[in-house]
Write a protein that binds this DNA or RNA. Structure first.
Length: 241
DNA sequence: CCCTGATTCGC
DNA sequence: GCGAATCAGG
């Protein structure tokens, strides 16, 4: 079925009415909803509120490709495609929410300190043993492997927090409270380990990491034809739809 | 699973 | 230009 003038007019009208692409495709007949969407785009019709686009942070993703670090910069021939960049670690987002303590005389710890999300270290590869860092109170964590059973630990009671001197081994390392938007937040080591700290280099402006770590965190996606097929899975692989 | 619209890219 | 395949959020 081809796009006659008459069918294009009907598509435009229904698109303007806010009908979904599926409904338009059903109504026109002989075309899929993808065909309708594709045609609408080529006609330059208004974009609809997309479930995917909603809430997207434009400033971050739109500039991601342009400001990509030199180490992964795509060749000039590469299509301009901001969405071709993916962020690997979600750690930065978690750390962004680490607000500084109120400036009161001495802060009081909340009764129930939620355990931080067990963020995987950036270097972790699939198949590696997943360690969990369980909070055992303010500033304390234990490492747990999947096999380690341990009853839940009751939250620490509220108590006054006394400013502690940093341990000598991290005296001049970048800790959680040293972070701000100009400092690279790439984790070095693992949370809970005595010398855990952050990279601390000057952050690439607009990014949570320094230029070097941006090169690890943001990587250009290969065109589909250049991607390797996923390795075969055990048991003959997943069910084919 | 279902739905949605956006995007990519082989044709 | 077309539209299936894919993506990603709801």
């Amino acid at each position: 079925m081809s796009w006659t003038d008459e069918r294009i007019e009907r598509l435009k009208a229904m698109w303007a009415e806010g009908k979904t692409a599926s409904a338009i495709a059903d109504d026109l007949g002989g075309v899929s909803r993808n065909a309708v969407i594709g045609k609408a785009h080529r006609l330059g019709l208004d974009s609809r509120p997309s479930p995917v686009k909603a809430g997207e942070d434009k400033s971050a993703s739109a500039t991601a490709a342009a400001a990509a670090p030199a180490s992964t910069a795509a060749p000039a021939s590469e299509r301009s495609a901001p969405s071709r960049v993916r962020e690997k670690p979600a750690i930065a987002a978690i750390l962004e929410s680490a607000a500084p303590m109120p400036d009161d005389d001495l802060p009081v710890a909340p009764a129930a300190t939620p355990a931080p999300a067990p963020a995987a270290a950036p270097a972790a590869k699939t198949g590696e043993t997943v360690m969990v860092y369980r909070s055992i109170g303010p500033g304390g964590f234990v490492r747990q492997g999947p096999g380690d059973q341990q009853p839940p630990i009751p939250p620490a009671p509220p108590r006054r927090l006394v400013p502690a001197k940093p341990a000598p081994e991290i005296a001049d390392k970048t800790g959680l409270l040293d972070l701000n938007d100009r400092i690279c937040k790439w984790p070095m080591g693992h949370p809970g380990e005595p010398d855990f700290h952050f990279c601390g280099q000057q952050a690439n402006p607009g990014y949570p990491y320094c230029v070097q770590h941006c090169g690890v965190a943001y990587q250009a996606q290969l065109p589909r034809r250049d991607r390797r097929p996923p390795p075969p899975l055990p048991y003959g692989g997943p069910r084919v739809r």
